[in-house]
């Protein structure tokens, strides 16, 4: 990474309210996807109590310093940034470690993000679950946000709460990623539909990720799906989110309606009216 920056960095908070809906997976995959598109990208793990971004990126053994040491000036920023071996445009910065005695403040987060933003095109902040101090710290440093949710009542309710808090903090734009979509269940109306969720939350959709077992496999390996050009549906979805963020116009297809061919459409119709299969 060089120090010369033409445009100001995009500083994007990735948050959900509820835990376990796919924030960290999205941050890791989006980070790799943006880096592969030539963007200098830094992913910041704002959850220092329960940090996991290092694990998903396969960088867990390479962390020496954190933002805490940079702020205390016991190391330089370059030393704390962990560069990804296969994708040198991507670097990870953990906010702190679980043994840390002092918690970061919103001002600390703003300072460290401003430092990182000087040498990046994209800064992705992986927000902790919840709406307490961890969220407030992370949100204080962000300009825009992606709210990720799943088509489940609890996740959508929590997302709604977070969207309200982002609005009062002036974070904008806020866009939505709908994760773990099951097209068949949606087609038979046994799951909240894509339109249902976007109607309720009133946010523009920037990505739809279908439920995909490959996500678990990639997590086990510490290699995000977007790293090796894996053609799995989720990998494609993450790549498309990265391209939409950069302003490319890539249409979103509702997977529960996108079954092509007469036979498939007929089956879809039958499934919808009867709820069978």
């Amino acid at each position: 990474m060089d120090a010369v920056t033409s445009a100001p960095a995009r500083i994007i908070l990735i948050c959900s309210g509820k835990g376990g809906v796919g924030k960290t997976t999205l941050t890791a995959n989006l980070g790799i996807a943006l880096a592969r598109l030539g963007e200098r990208t830094v992913v910041l793990d704002a959850d220092f109590g329960l940090r996991n971004l290092d694990l998903l990126l396969g960088l867990e053994n390479r962390i020496v310093y954190t933002a805490q040491e940079v702020l205390a000036e016991t190391c330089r920023l370059e030393q704390a940034l962990v560069k990804h071996k296969q994708e040198p445009n991507l670097a990870l910065l953990p906010a702190g470690n679980p043994r840390m005695l002092e918690w970061l403040t919103p001002e600390d987060m703003q300072r460290i993000v401003a430092m990182v933003a000087e040498r990046a095109d994209y800064v992705l902040i992986d927000c902790p679950a919840g709406i307490e101090d961890g969220f407030k710290n992370a949100a204080a440093a962000a300009r825009e946000a992606i709210v990720i949710t799943t088509p489940e009542v609890s996740a959508v309710r929590d997302a709604d709460r977070v969207i309200g808090l982002l609005n009062t903090r002036g974070v904008a734009p806020v866009q939505l990623v709908l994760n773990r979509v099951r097209p068949r269940m949606m087609a038979s109306q046994e799951m909240l539909g894509v339109d249902d969720v976007t109607d309720i939350l009133a946010l523009p959709l920037v990505g739809l990720v279908v439920e995909d077992e490959q996500v678990i496999v990639s997590t086990n390996r510490g290699e995000p799906l977007t790293l090796n050009g894996n053609g799995s549906p989720a990998a494609k979805a993450y790549q498309n989110i990265a391209r939409r963020l950069r302003g490319e116009d890539i249409p979103l297809e509702d997977p529960s309606k996108a079954r092509k061919g007469l036979r498939a459409r007929l089956m879809n119709k039958i499934r919808k009216t009867t709820g069978l299969f």
Binding site: E152, V153, V156, R157, D160, M185, M186, S188, Q189, E190, M191, L192, G193, D196, I200, G275
Partner: peptide, 15 residues
């Protein structure tokens, strides 16, 4: 009703 519809109605109310 299909459970997806129930989910939407319950969410709208609680929100």
């Amino acid at each position: 009703k299909p459970s997806g519809t129930m989910a939407k109605e319950r969410l709208q109310l609680v929100l």
